[in-house]
């Protein structure tokens, strides 16, 4: 996609010129805080929204000119559950297979395959209403894969899931592109997720891509190790003068330094920082990358309603 912008009614600029290209067989991550424009980007690529300007091409088809062919090439797992909870898991897959025009033999074979993939074969004939959040997400992942799409969109695939379910989902996603023929675009605001799964990551903030690289490249761009000190409010001028200190960030009693060769230099840092309550040192994560480029933590701001509240709503239905 090139130069994608989206202006919503009321003049909210959700996207301000987004450019990226996803390679075959790649897992590409869009990482950013809530409201950064990740879901809007996916909705445009999935032909649910029309962009204001720019060009969006999926599997060689333009989203505005050939939306039908785009839709045939994609699978999608939405942020919120979109299966019918009055039906069983298998029935949901059956309907999906019919909607994508799969013939009986192929349909039945694929349903068993994807159920096995997400380990739901045993629960396939239970109504989705009785599934846990994690199971439902797995079902929808299976559904997104049923018709063998060329591109799979995953919008916050593990939002609101417990750590164990998250590990499950990660395992399936990681295995998917190995067989080839599938590219994945996933959005997340979990650093760990982007680091574990993605071949390349674009950090997106306020509708713009700030930086795009491999997770490794991104963490290296920070240039050193991260040292976080819990202190009073020390005078940092002495630290700032040291040539191995690359950046200093001071916030509410927390002093975050980016430091070359942290292990060697730590004693001196501690001496210069004065009274220190605790020290944490680690090689940089994407969270540090985000902080490095935007000056903000990615987790600031409330979590989206997401799965929990939507599940409650769907129970009330009908």
């Amino acid at each position: 996609m090139r130069g994608l912008t989206k202006v919503f009614e009321g003049g909210i600029h959700a996207l301000r010129g987004i450019d990226f290209h996803i390679k075959d067989g790649e897992i590409f991550g869009l990482l950013g805080p809530n409201g950064a424009g990740k879901t809007t980007t996916i909705n445009i690529l999935a032909t649910l929204l029309k962009q204001t300007s720019g060009e969006a091409v999926v599997n060689g088809f333009d989203c505005l000119e050939e939306p039908h062919k785009v839709r045939q090439s994609i699978g999608i797992v939405f942020q919120d559950p979109s299966s019918d909870d009055m039906l069983t898991g298998r029935e949901n897959l059956h309907l999906h297979g019919l909607m994508y025009g799969l013939r009986k033999a192929e349909r039945e074979k694929r349903i068993e395959e994807v159920l096995r993939l997400v380990e739901l074969t045993d629960r396939a004939d239970d109504r989705v209403r009785r599934y846990s959040g994690g199971m439902r997400r797995r079902l929808e992942l299976a559904r997104g894969l049923l018709h063998k799409p060329k591109v799979l969109f995953l919008d916050e695939p593990t939002l609101g899931l417990d750590p164990q379910s998250r590990e499950h989902v990660w395992r399936y996603i990681g295995g998917l592109v190995d067989e080839g023929g599938l590219s994945i675009l996933l959005t997340t605001h979990y650093m760990e997720e982007a680091e574990k799964l993605c071949h390349r990551v674009a950090i997106i903030d306020r509708g713009k891509i700030i930086v795009l690289d491999t997770p490794k490249g991104l963490t290296e761009s920070v240039g050193g190790d991260v040292v976080a000190l819990k202190t009073g409010n020390p005078d940092v001028t002495a630290l700032a003068e040291k040539e191995y200190v690359l950046s200093i960030e001071q916030k509410e009693g927390l002093l975050t330094l980016t430091v070359r060769d942290a292990k060697q230099n730590l004693p001196e840092i501690l001496r210069l920082a004065g009274r220190v309550e605790s020290v944490e040192m680690h090689s940089p994560t994407l969270n540090d990358v985000f902080l490095h480029y935007t000056g903000r933590e990615i987790r600031e701001g409330p979590e989206e309603g997401g799965y929990g509240t939507r599940m409650m709503m769907s129970v009330k239905r009908r």
């Binding site: 999935a46 032909t47 559950p81 019918d84 909870d85 999906h96 939507r310 709503m313």
Partner: peptide, 9 residues
């Protein structure tokens, strides 16, 4: 309940 999105994509 977002089933519509599944149908519309």
């Amino acid at each position: 309940v977002d089933f519509l999105k599944e149908v519309l994509v």
